Simulated scan of single mutants.
Amino acid sequence: MEEMNKKQIKKAGRKPKIDPAVHRYSFNLNDEDNAKFLALFDQSRMNTKAHFITACIFQKTIKTVKIDMNAVNYHEGLTKFFGQFRGIATNYNQIVRLLNSNFSEKKALAYLYKLEKQTTEMKELLLKVLILTDEFEKKYLNKE
């Protein structure tokens, strides 16, 4: 009786499962079927093959996620571009403020004229980027 109490008091180790999976099955696949199985398993993004197999057998829903790395790379580049564009807008405001406070009106207008030319070029570039983004989304991301 004392031995039984000692086993119950001991709390070290893993807790026993309520319904342990003790029934095991084995099956063999040829090379072609194994390649198909591994491809489906990779698409499912599941962690273990056993969970994937039981989900297939009992017709549970399996989520597959396909990631287009070109779209991800394009999005990252576009995000960086717009980050730089916001930085340029901040610098633009600082430059205009400095021109008005540190230079005579004539010199400030001359520099502002040059800045205005650069701004129109940036606007054209931004419009081209927006057009390319729309084309990319229609062609590769199937957005309409």
Rank of each mutant, 00 (worst) to 15 (best):
G87M: 03
Q84D: 14
T48M: 13
R45A: 10
V72R: 01
V72K: 00
A55W: 08
G83L: 08
L40A: 14
C56K: 12
F82P: 08
N73F: 10
T64Y: 05
A50N: 15
N73S: 12
N73G: 04
I67H: 01
L78F: 13
M69F: 08
A71Y: 07
F58N: 13
F85Q: 12
I53N: 15
F41T: 03
S44T: 05
L40Y: 03
K63M: 11
G83M: 07
Q84S: 11
F37C: 03
F37Y: 13
I57F: 09
G83T: 12
Q43F: 01
G83F: 04
N47G: 13
F85R: 11
A39D: 09
Q43P: 00
M69C: 03
H51E: 13
I62M: 04
M46D: 00
F37T: 03
H51G: 11
I57N: 05
K36M: 07
N70A: 06
L38P: 00
Y74T: 11
A39Y: 10
A55G: 02
K80R: 15
F82C: 12
K63Q: 12
S44V: 00
R45Y: 01
F41V: 03
K49A: 09
N47R: 09
K80W: 06
F37E: 02
F85M: 12
I67L: 10
S44W: 00
T54M: 10
I57R: 01
S44Q: 04
N47I: 10
R45M: 06
F85E: 11
Q59S: 13
I67C: 03
G77V: 05
I57Y: 09
T48K: 14
I53M: 15
A39R: 09
S44I: 03
F58K: 10
M69T: 08
K63A: 05
N73D: 11
F37G: 00
D42Q: 07
T48C: 13
S44F: 01
T64H: 05
V72Q: 00
